[in-house]
């Protein structure tokens, strides 16, 4: 992007935000320190403060769609197809906050117009979201032993949000989720015996998935958790939220991909399964059987492998040439290897 174009885009966004903060926090409120954070291609995040006259500044984050959002592509985009719009994502965070899940407040939204794409604005909380740092740094030493319990508790709370309170969401029960992943693999025209075994094994044991339907976060893992010195400070990145079996989230947080080398700690590299499940019960969830959790771990390993393959094929099909994306393709073998240790 040329410097000129990016300056115009920033100025347009600043004007929109100045208007909106004056509506939300009162006349005379302005914004300060608007700066783009992530260079991610799929979503933009921006940091800024709102300055209400005579009151404390509000540290905020905007998450919006990219300005040149393309039309949805074919199946090979994989999980991207499941992504929610920004208004629904922000609404899920508000609902989660209402049932006691630690999440940033979401004070307002942006409509798409000629100056900006659609987005939502959330409170900018203190803390760390990088999984590796959460596991390694001394400042989180006191937080780490509490995280598995807190993650279980938080999940039970958002899993229990009544369906009639939820906005319209994609519905992906386990059998359809299996078909979906199988179709993604088929679309690569690269027969894969390891993942095929996973589909077969999971399909034989569908009753272990459980039959409850509720809000699934969809990417509940170390890396999407904001952590401070005392523990879980916020659950982030709700854009893969959908209706399905909530236990999916508990299996996903346990897969080895999010342990960053701390393999003896099953939950995110920081905790134990027993703490996760105790926390789930303490948050109002059912007692989850180890067999069900095991089912969803196998599912999670498969899903991670398929995501890795999907990213590689984004490069291989020429959609987006990237040494990073094509290299992640080789990590599919990690999901395959892990699931093959878990099945019989």
């Amino acid at each position: 992007m040329s410097k000129h174009k990016s300056e115009i885009e920033t100025a347009n966004l600043a004007a929109v935000l100045d208007d909106r903060v004056a509506e939300v926090y009162g006349p005379g409120t302005e914004i300060d320190g608007l700066v783009r954070l992530s260079g991610g291609a799929s979503r933009e995040t921006w940091s800024f403060d709102a300055l209400p006259p005579g009151r404390a500044r509000r540290p905020l984050i905007l998450k919006r769609d990219p300005l040149d959002e393309k039309a949805p592509g074919p199946l090979t985009e994989g999980e991207v197809q499941l992504g929610l719009d920004r208004w629904t994502e922000g609404r899920l965070m508000q609902l989660a906050g209402e049932v006691g899940v630690p999440v940033p407040d979401v004070p307002f939204f942006l409509h798409a117009d000629d100056r900006t794409s659609a987005g939502f604005v959330m409170q900018r909380l203190e803390g760390e979201a990088l999984g590796r740092r959460i596991l390694r740094e001394d400042e989180f030493a006191a937080a780490r032993p509490k995280l598995a319990f807190q993650c279980g508790q938080a999940a039970a709370r958002f899993h229990s949000i009544p369906r009639d309170r939820l906005p319209p969401l994609p519905y992906l029960p386990v059998a359809e989720a299996l078909d979906y992943n199988r179709d993604v693999v088929d679309s690569f025209d690269q027969p894969h015996a390891g993942f095929e075994y996973a589909f077969h094994w999971l399909r034989e044991r569908l009753e272990l998935a459980g039959d409850r339907v509720g809000l699934v976060h969809g990417d509940y893992r170390n890396g999407n958790l904001l952590v401070d010195g005392t523990g879980l400070a916020g659950v982030l990145d709700w854009e893969l939220g959908h209706l399905g079996n909530p236990l999916n989230d508990l299996g996903w947080i346990c897969i080895r991909a999010w342990r960053y080398g701390y393999y003896d700690k099953s939950v995110g590299g920081f905790g134990e399964v027993s703490d996760l499940l105790d926390g789930y019960e303490a948050g109002g969830g059912e007692r989850v059987s180890l067999d069900s959790l095991h089912f969803w771990e196998v599912f999670g390993c498969m899903r991670w492998g398929v995501i890795c393959m999907t990213l590689a094929f984004t490069h291989l099909t020429g959609k987006e040439r990237s040494v990073e994306k094509v290299s992640i393709g080789r990590r599919a073998a990690e999901g395959e290897y892990d699931l093959l240790q878990l099945v019989d």
Partner: peptide, 11 residues
């Protein structure tokens, strides 16, 4: 064995 070989090459 096949998955282990893949990982022995990849990581």
């Amino acid at each position: 064995q096949t998955a282990e070989d893949k990982i022995a090459l990849a990581n």
